[in-house]
Design a binder for these strands. Sequence first.
DNA 1: ATCGTTTATCGTCGATTAACGATTAATAAT
DNA 2: ATTATTAATCGTTAATCGACGATAAACGAT
Lengths: 106, 106
Amino acid sequence: MPQSIQKCCPSPSLEKIPLNTDRLAEICKALAHPARIQILSHLKAIDQCICGQLVEVLPLAQSTVSQHLKILKIAGLIKGEVEGPRTCYCINHDALEELNTMLAAI
Amino acid sequence: MPQSIQKCCPSPSLEKIPLNTDRLAEICKALAHPARIQILSHLKAIDQCICGQLVEVLPLAQSTVSQHLKILKIAGLIKGEVEGPRTCYCINHDALEELNTMLAAI
DNA sequence: ATCGTTTATCGTCGATTAACGATTAATAAT
DNA sequence: ATTATTAATCGTTAATCGACGATAAACGAT
């Protein structure tokens, strides 16, 4: 421990962590499509929603929207909770913060 | 104007600009590859460099590195200045700022 | 048990990406 | 003028993406 400075954030540490280029690229890849940005934006605006609502909003087929949701979920940008026949999605704020942190570390 | 609050930042304005999803996706797409992140990171570290230096650092062929540079340049993330037979690349900080702004507006 | 609703997955197809070697272009040096 | 150096472009190939319709899976309601 280099001088005992009180940490304000939990997790990793701030001492020039070496930037996980693979992880950053992975997140950016998940964001590399307008529809997925729109999904995130919509989720941010209404806090949470199910796939069907997004299908109404986006000019895409249900299967395509579901596919985009899957990509966002795998990248960790959203969380999905099964509720009976539907799945409720919401933003994973931790991932967005992770993204900001990594971008700052470029 | 919703209550006169002094602006602390110049440019655009902060009043909920509508987020250009295409542009954000475009930038993210350019960042959606580890090699391109590494290029940016390297450029940030050494301020500027030519293609050949990056070829030494990255495990990729010269043509591939050149291609990645082109992608970054088209997305506006880097600037390239021809200097005789070589081209000197550097980060376009404006684009990174643009990225941060748009991410915050998601 | 069947039906309706909702979502995920499968299979397909065309378009795009990523990588490479080979070639070309531009310039500096001799 | 020739040669060496550097970078960009071309052409190719395999892999991945994005979109869709069709189908399957999960569940609530009747």
